[in-house]
Design a protein around this nucleic acid. Structure first.
Lengths: 251, 251
DNA sequence: CGCGTTAGGATTGTCCACAATCCACGCAGC
DNA sequence: GCTGCGTGGATTGTGGACAATCCTAACGCG
């Protein structure tokens, strides 16, 4: 037997809000599997291109293949996983173009969210800022402990949290897969030398949000996202197959 | 046998781009079913709350229940359909809050798209504007023919087309379910007296886009969306169940 | 007469076995 | 030695059967 891909069952943070206490047992189990895989991908323990065999996942989580199948379908809907017919599921590899577009979409949405957050009534704003501050503390702790995977996850969750607290749930839902796709783009295109997203920038954003300084918050958020994007190497080396075709057509 | 819900098999416009000519036969069949149902919902032939029985859908489309099941899962991901565990699938009924948030998200995204479109290089912009104009012609024809369902569908497709032509595919993907959800909100909250989206407003937007007048295009687009939203009656009458509870608590 | 209870029927959820598809390897032919 | 073509093994896709769940309605009891 070949060495199976490691998928440690770290219980990830609950996704969205758990409305119903009991809910459906099956549905929650499925969500846990979803979150575990999504988190492993976002945390870059499963790099782009990794094959996700149904059987392996089924035995890993101790469930039937049918359930894995549904989870993979859901993951493919978020563009985190690519489903090739009769070939199986693979961790998605965004194209440079797609990566740029994802970041553009994030800038648009998160700019609006920053403005929205800053416009919150003072009391709610203060409470929300406290939650953000507590979150950044956890980011700092993970960074200090050298836990790279946790750092990455928490950094994404920071942005998600800003969106959730900003008060438009629909926009926050749209943001969620974009953050995951960003992480995928980073995994694919960030040179190993570059540092990840520092908690300090997040802290600066919080200060602006807390003060209700919408203009500053938006500027900092935009700069923060641009900085992350600019660390990526998105030019050059297109797909080898395409290159080949061009060579043949050009020759 | 009871009268089955009418789901005429009008072949809807191809969704996104059909990259591969053969592709997977099953996948395309599934997409067709998806599109047919989605279009029936968006066209308000299936109003919010309608029960979507797996068996009925399966026999209607002549496929197995398993495939219907996948389609319903996908539809529920787009928030067009609500999946209640052990209860089945229902056409979603957005809350007033959700409806407002959907329109807010649309304003944000479509404002950006209008700006993007207006900033296109002149040649591409002219070509794109021609496609929009051709589309509005079809809207006019449907309106003149009194085909309400087609009018609604084409009106949604206009916005989708602006997004597609504006050049950010990721944003255009995000917009798609938002348009469907808008249609659902309209079905739920627009009084029967109100008129639908008129093609003339679309034509005015096209002119501004064509001229590269970003400021005007953005303003017209924003006004257009606001007008649609303001026709809805989103205040008052919360869920009856909630009302009951409040009465009991208050009494 | 109203409420709680309990079968009945229908619908959804799950699993399992089989069919279809595809890649990798090996082999003949040039 | 390289190219092209079958064959084997593994993996995915599909259908059908069965189990679990829930609503409806009738029934009996207080």
């Amino acid at each position: 037997m070949r060495r199976t891909t490691t998928l440690r069952a770290t219980a990830p943070a609950q996704r969205a809000s758990a409305t119903r206490p009991p809910a459906s047992r099956a549905a929650t189990a499925e969500r846990q599997i979803f979150d575990t895989i999504a988190e492993a991908i976002a945390g870059r323990r499963l790099p782009p291109g990794t094959k996700l065999t149904e059987e392996q996942l089924a035995s890993t989580f101790g469930v039937s293949r049918a359930r894995i199948r549904r989870v993979l379908l859901l993951l493919s809907q978020e563009r985190i996983v690519t489903l090739k017919p009769n070939r199986g599921a693979y961790v998605a590899r965004p194209t440079p173009q797609e990566a740029r577009e994802v970041f553009a979409a994030r800038r648009l949405i998160e700019d609006d969210m920053a403005a929205r957050f800053a416009a919150l009534p003072p009391a709610a704003r203060a409470a929300a800022a406290r939650r953000l501050t507590a979150h950044v503390e956890r980011e700092r702790a993970a960074a200090a402990a050298g836990d790279r995977s946790a750092s990455i996850r928490l950094s994404g969750e920071f942005h998600q949290l800003v969106g959730t607290l900003a008060g438009n749930a629909v926009l926050a839902e749209l943001l969620e897969p974009l953050i995951a796709r960003s992480s995928l783009a980073i995994a694919a295109y960030q040179p190993p030398s570059a540092e990840d997203c520092a908690p300090d920038e997040h802290a600066a954003i919080i200060t602006a949000l807390q003060d209700g300084d919408a203009a500053l918050a938006r500027r900092l958020m935009a700069e923060h996202l641009e900085e992350v994007e600019h660390k990526l190497v998105l030019d050059g080396d297109a797909e080898p197959a395409i290159d080949l075709k061009r060579v043949l057509l050009g020759a």
